[in-house]
Design a protein around this nucleic acid. Sequence first.
DNA 1: TATTGTTATACTCTATAACTATA
DNA 2: TATAGTTATAGAGTATAACAATA
Lengths: 150, 150
Amino acid sequence: MNEARDNLGPLDRLAGYHFRRTSSAMRKDFEKAVDGLGISQVSFAVLSVISANPGIRQGEVGRMLDIQRANMVTMIGDLTKSELVTRGRDESDRRAVTLSLTPRGQDQLAASLARIQAREAKALEGLDEKQVAALIATLNAIRRNCENAD
Amino acid sequence: MNEARDNLGPLDRLAGYHFRRTSSAMRKDFEKAVDGLGISQVSFAVLSVISANPGIRQGEVGRMLDIQRANMVTMIGDLTKSELVTRGRDESDRRAVTLSLTPRGQDQLAASLARIQAREAKALEGLDEKQVAALIATLNAIRRNCENAD
DNA sequence: TATTGTTATACTCTATAACTATA
DNA sequence: TATAGTTATAGAGTATAACAATA
């Protein structure tokens, strides 16, 4: 009944390949989850970080999420136009832009979070809470290894 | 000594976020590994699949790797120009294009594979062979869950 | 001088629709 | 009518360089 598995060659033993495929599948899942809300994985991440750190500097958000300064500008511009985020000036360093969520931004974050969590529950079916935590810890360890390599 | 960890908000408990970051870090690692060889994660994957299945149809490669037909054309066109891949016609179905590696394609695959494996070993430091196999199995299970969701 | 944000731009990856030739 | 490949094109996402304001 089981079809013979595709022969991918050496690729099949490379973790990087499987990460790329799984990450892509989860991104498509994400897009289905938030369909119609006009939000992407990255803009959701930005909303989440601002929500947890009201008044955070724009550049700091970029550093936390590995988003280039130049790309932060467009992103925040869009989120401001959509009235999800408000910009301010840091009075102690007038170069810096500070960011906060609007009430609408908070609603948007909560609504999309609920949908995303529901989808993730299905994607992670078969793993208990402890295994998910362990998986995330492994992912973070691998990422650190990559980022610290020459 | 440890700095307080960044507060990402609810994002930090979403596996999809960590997959995106880890996958991106491994892609950057991949690019460093094959720097100068003119190969990408996807073109490497294509070479690997063709290597394991000489004479495979172009569309079949796309199905195995989730690459759109339209994008396969450009990809195979480039690999053919670089003399890594040769195209043939399937005589039993003259619509179909069959693919094989040139000797140079085989060399390219072997050379990049060695570099990629060396990098992966560092990225996966701390995990033994069994744990890596278990990780890959988990990634495949998650991907199947995503792909089978409505 | 160095840093924050900005503008402009380019490049890669991926997605879609319309076309052709074969089945 | 359906399938394999093709062409053209558009949209994300990301990367780089040059610049203005402020430190």
